[in-house]
Simulated scan of single mutants.
Amino acid sequence: MSVKAKRPAFVVALVALFVLLAGTPAAATIADPAGSPPDVTDCLYAPGPYSNSPPPAQACFRAYGDQIWVYDFDTPYAAIGMWENQLYYGGAWHAYRSDDCQNLEGEGEWGVCNYDFYEDGTTHKFGDKGSRVRFRACGAWGCSGWSSWWRNNN
């Protein structure tokens, strides 16, 4: 029986530094350990150190359940799924919330973060309707581009 090693404290500190330098919010969500994601909507891969390198991390969005799934292929720090949520009101889209889902489970493991986004067709706190989400995958060598905006209908 093998015992899975957790990431040491200095790795968590390095992740925090990476997140700070990447310009993301200070708050972060640590992913819960998880199996493979069910019916995800879309997935992106974080870039490796070279253009022909395999990706170190993958992030996926699952609209049903408002989940960000993050897979650690082989990143020396943490695999991260960053996301942004906007609400529509006053005739335009406005930033509402953002966060990042950090998978600290280690190489070859999935992690999942559950959020509670407004549904696109329900009235939100500003008295209007409209909610959308986008995400990207980040690893030790940077982040992917942002996904398309997903209207949160599930």
Rank of each mutant, 00 (worst) to 15 (best):
P38I: 00
E105C: 09
F126T: 10
T24G: 11
P49F: 03
V12P: 01
G35Y: 09
W149C: 08
G130E: 01
A9G: 01
W110R: 12
Y96V: 06
T29F: 02
G127R: 11
G81C: 04
A46C: 08
F117T: 03
F117P: 02
G65Y: 08
C138L: 04
N103E: 11
G111P: 06
F73D: 06
G23V: 00
R62W: 00
D66Y: 08
S51I: 02
K6P: 01
T122I: 10
Y64F: 10
A92E: 06
R62P: 00
P56I: 03
P8A: 10
G81Q: 04
M1N: 12
A22T: 11
V12M: 09
C101M: 06
G35W: 05
P54N: 11
S51W: 12
D39A: 15
F117L: 03
G127C: 09
M82V: 14
D100Y: 09
P38L: 03
N114Y: 02
G81F: 00
V19G: 04
A92S: 12
W110I: 08
W141I: 01
Y96H: 15
F61V: 00
N154V: 00
W149Y: 10
F135P: 05
D74I: 07
G23K: 03
G35F: 10
A140G: 01
C101P: 07
W83D: 02
R97W: 13
I68M: 10
V12I: 10
S51R: 11
A140I: 03
S98M: 09
A9Q: 14
Q86M: 12
R132D: 07
Q86F: 07
V70Q: 09
D99C: 07
N154T: 00
P37N: 04
K125I: 12
A78G: 15
S148L: 14
G90M: 09
M1R: 13
R7S: 14
E119T: 11
G142A: 10
D42W: 13
Y71E: 03
P54M: 06
D42L: 12
Q86D: 15
S53P: 13
A5P: 07
Y45S: 15
P8N: 09
S98G: 04
